[in-house]
């Protein structure tokens, strides 16, 4: 079973997104220059934007389909989102950020909490406020927050782009560990080929709102 199927058309002012692809393998990269529509695709999958027409299937579940008028809310799509600049809740501590998902769904304390905190190396930061974290720390917390909401699919939008070069080298190994150890499919948006080659098994090239080509990489 593939991670996801995506087909959508959306007009946003002068920009037209008209793309279709299937995510095979664990990590799929959406690759393309900025403004090509990668982030829009992510928001469409998450349910933060609505296609004019299309069909989106996540982990075997139809979350959007114009034909059947299906449109699940972001809450019911079970995606884990990581944005470029983390977007941690600024008024909550790191711990509260990490546990916001389980708390909002009234689920019990996630069993993987200690393990997640350990892999991401954020155990020492739990009681801090997000504004007292470095860019790299923030991104690790954001990744942890997404993982702990037990998502069907992980969506990462340029998760390391806002971090400077040295820090980037510091966070990529965490992502590699995650993609090895977590079964959750990951859709990774980036404009940096080095990252994409390091993490993904499949690259979808996006240009001007369209899929230009799809390449498979050796695992």
């Amino acid at each position: 079973m593939s991670g996801f199927e995506f087909r959508a058309r959306l007009r946003l002012g002068d920009f037209l997104l008209d793309a279709e692809f299937t995510g095979e393998g664990r990590v799929t990269a959406l690759f393309g220059p900025s403004g090509s529509g990668k982030s829009t695709i992510l928001r469409l999958i998450a349910g933060l934007l609505k296609p004019d027409e299309g069909r989106i299937v996540l982990a075997g579940r139809v979350v959007f389909d114009t034909a059947t008028r299906t449109n699940l809310s972001p809450r019911d799509r079970h995606v884990g989102l990581v944005f470029q600049d983390g977007l941690l809740f600024p008024h909550l501590s790191v711990r509260q950020n990490l546990l916001y998902g389980p708390w909002a769904r009234r689920s019990p304390m996630p069993a993987g909490f200690d393990q997640t905190v350990e892999i991401l190396d954020i155990a020492g930061l739990l009681d801090r406020a997000p504004r007292h974290l470095s860019g790299g720390e923030r991104q690790r917390v954001a990744i942890g927050r997404a993982l702990l909401s037990d998502p069907a699919v992980l969506l990462m939008d340029e998760p390391v782009a806002a971090i400077d070069q040295e820090r980037r080298a510091e966070i990529l190994p965490y992502l590699e560990t995650l993609t090895r150890e977590w079964p959750t499919p990951l859709l990774y948006v980036s404009h940096a080929m080095a990252e994409v080659e390091r993490l993904a098994q499949q690259i979808i090239n996006i240009r001007d709102g369209r899929v230009m080509s799809v390449e498979a990489l050796p695992a």
């Binding site: 998450a46 972001p74 809450r75 989102l81 944005f83 977007l87 809740f89 909002a104």
Partner: peptide, 17 residues
């Protein structure tokens, strides 16, 4: 930022929450 509220919704919070 609307994405901040989008993140909370994706994590499972209904609109009122």
């Amino acid at each position: 930022e609307r994405d901040l509220e989008g993140a909370a919704a994706s994590l499972g919070a209904p609109g009122w929450l």
